[in-house]
Write a protein that binds this DNA or RNA. Structure first.
Lengths: 224, 224, 224, 224
DNA sequence: AATGAATGAGGATTCATTCAT
DNA sequence: CATGAATGAATCCTCATTCAT
């Protein structure tokens, strides 16, 4: 999935309403907006700047997006519903479908996927992180489409492994929080905080899984 | 430490230059700015809004802070150098001073302190998180005064416990990242993401420590 | 040449970039600015005042001229390079082309021309005189495009008549200064200082020429 | 006369109202204002700038001068009535008192005096030239105290020499204008336009007198 | 659909002036 | 007298948005 931003946008919005495809200019506007929003933040970005970078007239932006905020929403809303949500929910069903017999198989899959996605969509992720706190509409969407669903399924997964006797019987939400913290801590360090380091993604992933599993595993294990 | 924001500001700036104390209005301006910046973000906040909330004329702001950006810097810079830095560095020396015989004692102290601070200074923390990405001056300060020093000392602490045989011999920076991720994951959830939950801070702290220690400890331990 | 201000502006800027003609509003802005600048001076003129007089929104000014200073420069720079310079240099070549066999024929031409121009472009001349001292960019332009070239050619003309034996062998620059002083003294009195007097331009011009020539002529002459 | 600016100001204002002498600060304010007004123009000068340069508090300026304009008037008005007027009128009476038997003696005296004054009071002269066009009050004062009186006396002097048969019988005002133009042309070039040249004031003065006299003299004279 | 000139409300900032100390 | 903090009107300028072409 998520090969690169351009495809994302194109496919996304074509899927949306097959007849009402995006024009070339619309795509240019979106791309320009994404780039500048992520660099300077929504509030500090002017529509004229976007128009210039997109190579269109200022008026053209408002032909496609009623307001500047509309443009932000048009980026973030489908990002949440069409991209983040599927990514976020990916792999969860496979646990119950027995594709991932162990919690660590599941961990490996979600870390791998989210990292790949994060690497390819830094701009979008930055916008998401930076703008959600300031826009209640986005917060609501995020909560409903991502947070709630993810937590629901995550809960099922964790309970499943807890009942199976693989995971410790500590509060489920604590397990989830610990897992997400450790995984996201790695991903965020990797792509946002110190991307300039030479990362051995494979090795760091395995170490992270190991550390998480040591914390959560019901059986004690020997260590190096 | 850090009883509450008002005291913070007052004490801070009195310490700064004992003779050259802040005026009453200056404090009002700072407080208003902190509140609104944290709610709407720096770029989306207008100086007239700050003036109104502070109960001063707009011109008064510019008598004390040459530009709007200056006002931001005047909030964030001392926040970094005078508050965040000491807090961030707190407890590290006690390890080598043998006040914390175990890594988990150290963990308990840093989680406790940072959590207390975070609870009392939510506004400041939000501003820090939200604005640092957009202001290179602040990034530089943060890197120099906080990140670098914290990592240096953290490294010493971790190496100390690794050599002592208490912590596993995995890469030091991975240990640090894992520790910070798990601890910050808890704190951020607690104060930013879902503060409305009923948290048993004591119990959650102990659980977090337990989880971290299980991942890092050189000896296997029994679990619940 | 120089029929009146409106034509000046229009022709000027059409010549400048034939395709990229000025809009109607742009001309209105220029005219309003010229009028108010000349009345109150650049620094004492507000952009809102200009907008009002021009019958446009204040923002419109800044769409055409990036800053208020830009507006001033846009008036004065082409004034110097396109209007003042040609006027200032007019007639000089005719001396060497033998169109003006005598220095007084040359004098008659330059006084006549400059006076006509000054009468029709009082506003522009006032702006020039008042603002040049305060704006180094304009000073530089004036020096390069006008002062230097005029002096060069004036020198040639004076030397020509001195070598021809018509003019006294006093320092060339003194001759030039004396000529310009006497001529400009007349023109400035005529259009700026006491324009309300009833002037017989023809007669005063001839008198001025006579006075100058008496001072400069190599031959003594009878007087009345 | 006019030894230097400082003395001028001090003497001037002490004379004014012997009891109500200027304070040290007042003098500093005046000096600072004169300097900055002459450099940047009245409208472009801020009172805070003046206060800073004068080394006083902003409020202090307004204790002595009700408004900023008042400060300008306080500089220019006495300049006109106490300084420019006497200087302008100097020497005129000496003609009729037979101290100057010839028009050229008179010329020599006025050029010399005005040049000395101009050299020592450049700042004041610049302010005068630049601000009079924009301030009707100053215009009125200048007209009444200087222009009118000077012209009256100048007229008497010229008529005197015309009736004596020394000067040509051309219109008196033309004689005056020509004389002033030539004299001022020299002085202005000397102190304002190209002060950086190496001027032989003595020689240039004599040349100017010679040129003027040739134009005006009733008798033809030999030339160099 | 696309343009870009035009708008005017609003933004940051300056400034002359006031007034309590 | 002198101060300088405080003021708020006014200044220059930006920006999202509209609309005639």
């Amino acid at each position: 999935m998520a090969e690169n931003l351009e495809k994302w946008i194109e496919e996304l919005l074509k899927l949306d309403d097959a007849e009402d495809r995006m024009t070339d200019k619309q795509i240019k506007i979106l791309k320009a907006a994404i780039e500048i929003f992520s660099e300077k933040g929504y509030a500090a970005t002017s529509t004229s700047e976007i128009a210039q970078k997109a190579g269109v007239a200022e008026g053209t932006i408002f032909r496609h997006y009623k307001t500047k905020k509309d443009l932000l929403i048009s980026i973030v809303a489908p990002l949440i519903t069409k991209i983040i949500t599927p990514i976020a929910l990916k792999d969860f069903n496979k646990v119950l479908g027995a594709s991932y017999p162990q919690y660590e198989d599941f961990l490996r899959a979600i870390i791998h996927n989210r990292l790949q996605f994060a690497k390819k969509n830094l701009h979008l992720i930055k916008i998401l992180i930076q703008e959600i706190p300031f826009h209640p509409e986005l917060q609501a969407q995020f909560k409903e489409h991502v947070a709630k669903k993810v937590l629901e399924r995550f809960e099922k997964v964790v309970v499943y492994f807890q009942e199976k006797g693989d995971l410790r019987s500590i509060p489920t939400y604590t397990v989830i929080r610990f897992t997400i913290s450790a995984a996201m801590g790695f991903i965020i360090s990797r792509v946002l905080l110190v991307p300039e380091l030479e990362w051995d993604d494979e090795k760091e992933t395995e170490l992270s899984i190991d550390l998480i599993m040591h914390g959560l595993s019901a059986k004690s294990s020997s260590q190096g």
